[in-house]
Amino acid sequence: MTSTVLKRCFALSLLSLFCAGPAIALVGSAQASTKTTPYQTTRANSGTPNSTHVTKNSSGVIISYGNSSITYRAPSAALATLGQALYQENCASCHGTEANGVPASGVSGAFPDLVGLGPATITFWINSGRMPAANPRSVEAVRRIPRLDNGQALAIAAWIDTLAPGYPLVPYPHLKNANVSDGAALFALNCASCHTIEGDGDALAYGTSSPSLRHVPAIQVAEAIRTGPGNMPRFTGNLSDAQVNDVVKFVTTAIQHPQNIGGFGLGGLGPVAEGFVGLALGVGVLALVGFWVGERD
């Protein structure tokens, strides 16, 4: 415990040394458009700064908070300048130069307003490869190889955060402290109804779909739970940071590395795949053997 506090103090001092100047300037400019709280929960240890260890920089901006389960950290404000350039290059054509969802004239359609969404939302969409979108007109963006790396994503998040601070910050789960069994129970109650109990995802209403969880890194799982990207709902008050950490642990262990002690896992499609195997490999092969055993005329 003390070591993490020490580390945070160290990080804090480093940050204040290197980026206090630009941070103050940028944050100051964004005070006017601060959004109200319905996007956040007031419950302690549930994703917003209502937690035990809140760290602020010298100008009073929260740069990290959390607990022994998840630490939420703001991207370094020093990246904001780089982030602005990256944003204008990669995102502004749809989300607008002010990140308010109003694109430059000539581009019609509704695009999400990014101001005040918080860094976790921004980094999730970029790091999961959904943004920049392959096809901005599609029903929903799908996971693909990210076009920007994590550092660039953090930079863009840092710049957008300067327009108006938002929460949650980027969650860093401490999986060592998680209880995979509690995670399994919470997953079955809250997540499996869309992602399936094997985490494979499937087609949902009106052309939407729930993505597979097989290759999602821990941070993105936590980000998705807390921010509710796209059609996914947010999980805020009913899941504490410890519980989110449990779910992340379950997803990154039991879902992503299932214990298939019974042979090949049959793609997690469940009884449909089992039915095809039973009929084709079971009845089918046996009928072929029967074809050999018997006569043809």
Binding site: A188, S193, G263, G270, G275
Partner: peptide, 26 residues
Amino acid sequence: FAQVNPIWQFGPYEASRISYAVQPDW
């Protein structure tokens, strides 16, 4: 070689829990 009905991955039944894409046997 073909794993069938891995119930440990499904977990125990509770009436409020559900998985998408559940089908009965064929």
